[in-house]
Design a protein around this nucleic acid. Structure first.
Lengths: 340, 340
DNA sequence: CTGTTAGCGCATTCAT
DNA sequence: ATGAATGCGCTAACAG
């Protein structure tokens, strides 16, 4: 922030315009090669660092992408989680998302990401010219309010973690339905016929969970098996097992799977001896749940990276695009062939 | 980014200077109350949003704080972790740090945080006027290179996760030594005398781990117990248990504790039946390790929040300050009275 | 190929 | 209490 372009120009014996052209690196400016090297040399010696504020004011580009992580610091409604902290899980996803964002930003030469602190802020917060585009993470627990408010805003927006967006907004989501179907099929292929869904699913009103239950249903129907209502608590589940109705459970989340395991364990039932168990998310610690939980890996980091790519694409003139990422099954030790 | 101050001025029948004064909110400008309300009204109707680039160019303040998370996207040297992904753990911490940063930013009215994508970037990246100050997370696995390079830079810096900084740089760290001592004392208070340290500790060269081993030592010495060399692998450990030399283990990290548990389990030894086990970090999933791992909670989010506070303080003229945060023990089920 | 000129939108003097 | 004038540091036209 000390030395400025004019001083570089003076020292190099050229005009500030020439310095600007040289340092822009753009070939179309056709600067004499010798002058160019001299200018670069002088700029380096003087330790010249272009001022972003001035440049932004002139070019109307910041190079920064904004990120709204709805989850960050959000208050914590829990679920059927048996005392497990959902906040901690969301943080894990935030970490994964951050890693994905950063990696992609680095590769695509995005100099900086702007994280908004969150909380209830008016839409104009995002329209003050601080960023060239916005990534909005539509956390499962929160609504699409911001997206709606941004609907008509003159700012390229990419929505993360949702498939419900207007056509002019890019979106990246994980294919929860496909993942859930895969998990359920895994159970079916092991010979299980009594396969239960554990979770809020459709009833929860959360888009992700709805799709997960949908995937479960789809897999059962394809196999010609009758649907059974979702289970919402451990007692219910234990009874169904005891009555011999179910031998396998697909839990909506890994945390749900942990709760299932605890309930089963408390009732003297074993995983996978008595019940095969599959989760969803592959959270950190999943390898410790139920002796190694078979679960569906949720590609949060990949989703974030794809989001950055989509946004950078838009800034370069690409059309909005909707992307769906396939999760994949990670088989560990909580599932077993039926009857063995 | 559409309508600007002059248009507001025109519509309100005043000059742009007056609009600026009104919207600055500063009392010292003494604007007529009626004019003020009228201006505010008009600005609102027109949807005026001040341009940050122009304002920054003028005031030399961005309102943004920079954040360097060394861990983000770093490549992954593992340890004695028995195949567990250290990357995932670091992500957890990143998530916690992010939550801490965001919460504090919100409370202290910091409009935005700038996350740098990481990778090897020259120092001038942080000196282009994009941010008013910088938070540098000195991840245990990485060095202090950036801090050194920033040494003479005209930018307020707060270092996270280290205690080794020059006096003009603020720093916030977790008191690993105190936490480790507390963990060890817990074991001693349960009557254990053969208490081993599992980890790289001093040998690893990582500041945190060094301090953790130091805390362990300190606790043993205060109890008048002889020190024993750190254990670095499961076989070693199992043998020591079999020889009756140790009945308790303090592992440098929760992941290390997981490895210990696996080794013990594989050898037919139980936790806490045969061996009491304490970890460090309280990572997500710790409640599933060894049936519920007793461990030291690592206040990463709190550290980040304190870092933001320290940086905002500096920007308001406070002196640099060094802070140490106390971790606390979380007792679960992996420790038990000696001999029971 | 290079330099001159003219703002980008705002906050701050300094007159009035 | 208000307005006119100035310039933050840079880049994009344009003229040479």
């Amino acid at each position: 922030m000390r030395i400025k372009i004019k001083e570089v120009a003076l020292a190099a014996g050229v005009s500030s315009a020439t310095v600007s052209k040289v340092l822009s690196g753009r070939a179309e400016y056709a600067v004499n090669a010798d002058t160019a090297t001299r200018v670069r040399q002088v700029a380096l010696e003087l330790g010249y660092i272009p001022d972003v504020a001035a440049r932004t004011l002139r070019t109307r580009e910041t190079g920064q992408l904004g990120v709204v992580l709805e989850a960050v610091g959000a208050s914590e409604p829990d679920g059927l989680l048996d005392g497990v902290s959902a906040g901690a899980v969301r943080r894990t996803f935030d970490g994964a998302i951050l890693a994905g964002l950063s990696g992609a930003a680095r590769e695509l030469n995005v100099p900086a990401l702007v994280i908004y602190p969150g909380g209830d802020v008016p839409v104009h917060t995002f329209l003050d010219g601080r960023v060239d585009g916005l990534l909005v993470s539509c956390d499962p627990l929160r609504g699409h309010g911001l997206l709606n408010a941004l609907h008509a805003a003159p700012l390229p927006v990419v929505a993360l973690w949702t498939q419900r967006v207007p056509a002019h907004i890019s979106a990246v989501d994980v294919d929860h339905q496909a993942g859930a179907a895969q998990a359920t099929r895994h159970l079916l292929e092991l010979g299980h016929r009594g396969v239960a869904f554990y979770g809020g699913g459709t009833a929860s009103g959360v888009e992700h969970f709805h799709r997960r239950e949908e995937g479960y249903r789809q897999a059962l129907q394809s196999a010609g098996l009758p649907l059974r209502p979702a289970l919402h608590d451990g007692t219910q589940l234990v009874e169904a097992v005891r009555r011999g109705e179910i031998s396998a459970v697909f839990a909506e989340t890994d945390l749900g799977a942990a709760a299932v395991f605890h309930a089963l364990h408390a009732a003297g039932l074993s995983v996978p001896g008595d019940v095969s168990l599959v989760g969803f998310d592959d959270i950190l610690g999943a390898e410790y749940i139920a002796g190694g939980l078979t679960t569906v890996y949720h590609p949060a980091a990949e989703m974030a990276a794809e989001g950055v790519a989509a946004l950078v694409g838009r800034l370069n003139g690409d059309s909005p695009r909707q992307t769906l990422l396939s999760p994949h099954l990670t088989v560990r030790h909580s599932t077993r062939q039926y009857g063995h």
